[in-house]
Simulated assay, not measured.
Amino acid sequence: MSTVRQSGPVERWRRSAGTTAGGLSRVLVRGAGAAVVAVAAALLHDAHDPGVLCPLRRFTGIPCPGCGSTTVFIEAGHGNLLGAVAANPVTVVVALGLLVAPLGPGRWWWRLPNSRRNAVIWGAAALSWSWQLHRYGFLPV
């Protein structure tokens, strides 16, 4: 009995992710989707500002590491890229990483041991939280 390997959507994606044409088309689709979401978020925010969305910040006044992530997309939707970076630079870096992931530069990430990946994630969260605490005046210059 021979084993026949099935080619499902995930396997096809893995094969095409390394190719320039397949990866580039995925980057363009992701970029277009992100642009549509950013413009929609900006238009929705202009029509109705819901106020502070973060529960931690709303109830305690202290920002969380993810604070500013919605503002990143709102500012990007308005075309203010510097404002997006100022709101949460870690979110911008993660979004760009996810955008270009189909080109294959993140393969090194999956080769890292779990402990190292966790250390990077916790480090990024600590950096983001420090940025937010400074941004809202909880940390001195």
Rank of each mutant, 00 (worst) to 15 (best):
E75M: 09
P9I: 14
W13F: 14
S69W: 05
T70M: 07
L103A: 13
A124K: 00
L99S: 09
G97Y: 08
R30T: 13
C64R: 00
A126I: 01
A35F: 12
R117E: 02
I62C: 02
W13E: 01
T19W: 00
R117P: 00
P50H: 11
V36C: 15
P102H: 03
R107E: 12
W110L: 11
T20P: 03
L98W: 14
G31N: 07
P105L: 10
P9F: 13
G104L: 08
R26Y: 00
W109N: 04
N118D: 04
G66W: 04
G123M: 10
S2M: 07
N80A: 06
C67M: 10
L99E: 06
L127K: 00
V27D: 02
S7V: 12
L56S: 13
S2P: 15
W129E: 01
R5Y: 09
G83P: 04
N118S: 13
C54L: 04
H48V: 06
G77Y: 02
A86Y: 03
L53G: 14
D49E: 10
P102Q: 05
L81V: 09
C54D: 15
L133N: 02
A35P: 10
G77R: 03
P50Q: 09
G23A: 12
P65L: 05
W122G: 02
S25M: 12
P113K: 08
C54F: 01
W108K: 01
L112I: 04
V4R: 11
V29N: 06
L103I: 13
W13I: 10
W109L: 09
P65Q: 08
G51Y: 07
V52N: 08
A47L: 08
G123C: 06
M1S: 10
Q6Y: 06
L24K: 08
L98D: 01
R111T: 05
S16M: 04
F73V: 02
T91H: 02
G61L: 10
R58Y: 12
Y136C: 00
A86S: 11
A86L: 11
S115G: 13
A124P: 00
V120M: 14
L96K: 04
P105R: 06
H48L: 11
V94K: 00
L133G: 03
V141E: 08
V4M: 09
A32W: 11
R5W: 06
A119Y: 02
V36M: 10
H48A: 15
V36W: 09
R117L: 01
G31E: 07
P105M: 08
P50E: 09
R12S: 11
V120E: 01
V93S: 05
A40S: 14
R58A: 15
L28E: 09
V37T: 13
F138D: 05
R58H: 14
G106K: 08
G61H: 08
A86G: 08
H134Q: 05
P113L: 01
C54A: 13
W129Q: 00
V85W: 10
G51R: 07
E11D: 13
N118Y: 02
I62Y: 14
V92L: 06
L127Y: 01
F138N: 04
G66C: 09
A47P: 01
R30I: 15
R58D: 07
L112G: 05
R15L: 11
